[in-house]
């Protein structure tokens, strides 16, 4: 790679490979840019907007913006972090996120980002939407209360599992996850525990049944280290 294949992220040079997004390049370099709907194995979606950065002064999603030589990217700034906190608060009030009763607590990326950005409360009036759970599948539970509409399961099921079990339907805050079968119940779909879609939910919306507290609260991934440090360590491991 030539020396000019770098851009500046918060004043530090980041090397990149042609075709990488700003988020991918930063992640590879061990610099964390907050994100929720991104997953390295899938096409970027760009909907959560947590990774919003300023590229040469213009706001754009780091996950969908190609890295280019000489870009000046600002990410870890008080202003952008304030926006991110607001976006997290929006996600918290939009659904029903009660961490103490959630098996994902401690491994949840939404929660971990809230910790990282020091979000102390959800701030806005809660919507408290009524969202019944779907326990029809023998192995997997869907708790729609916690769904943040990141479409990772949609992409995993469509692009990896080749099943398209999930889709997002509805408009505005009525948007919700739907299951591909006439009854709309996961148990009636061809979803399987071994599907990629069963393993990508960043929050506690898609959870395996009969697994509870095998790792105690307090010892889980983001209890042990903040999500930003975790991302940096993961980059080191990949080396």
């Amino acid at each position: 790679m030539s020396d000019d294949a770098t851009f500046m992220l918060d004043g530090r040079p980041i090397r990149f490979v042609a075709g990488q997004s700003i988020l991918e390049a930063a992640t590879a370099a061990g610099t964390f840019i907050p994100n929720l709907c991104h997953h390295p194995e899938f096409k970027p979606h760009g909907s959560c907007k947590l990774c919003t950065v300023k590229v040469n002064g213009r706001a754009s999603s780091a996950c969908t913006t190609r890295a280019r030589a000489g870009q000046e990217v600002a990410s870890d700034t008080p202003e952008l972090n304030r926006h991110r906190r607001t976006l997290l608060q929006m996600l918290f009030v939009e659904g029903n996120h009660f961490c103490p009763g959630c098996e994902k607590s401690g491994n949840c990326r939404l929660q971990a980002l809230a910790y990282d950005l020091e979000m102390l409360n959800p701030h806005y009036e809660h919507f408290y939407p009524p969202r019944p759970i779907d326990a029809s599948h023998p192995d997997v539970l869907i708790d729609f209360n916690r769904c943040i509409l990141c479409a990772l399961c949609v992409r995993a099921s469509r692009d990896v599992d080749g099943k398209s079990v999930f889709a997002l339907a509805g408009r505005g805050t009525a948007q919700h996850l739907v299951v591909d079968c006439p009854s709309g119940k996961l148990g009636d779909s061809d979803f399987a525990m071994t599907d990629k879609a069963a393993a990508v939910c960043p929050v506690g919306a898609i959870l395996p049944k009969r697994v509870g507290f095998s790792v105690p609260i307090g010892e889980r991934t983001f209890d042990v280290e903040p999500i930003s440090a975790h991302a940096a360590h993961a980059a080191e491991t990949r080396g």
């Binding site: 918290f92 029903n96 996120h97 009660f98 961490c99 103490p100 009763g101 102390l120 409360n121 959800p122 809660h126 408290y128 939407p129 009524p130 969202r131 019944p132």
Partner: peptide, 15 residues
């Protein structure tokens, strides 16, 4: 605490 901050467990009756 959680209940004071977002309603917590008691708020699970909200639906």
């Amino acid at each position: 605490g959680a209940c004071a901050v977002n309603g917590g467990l008691p708020a699970q009756r909200n639906h």
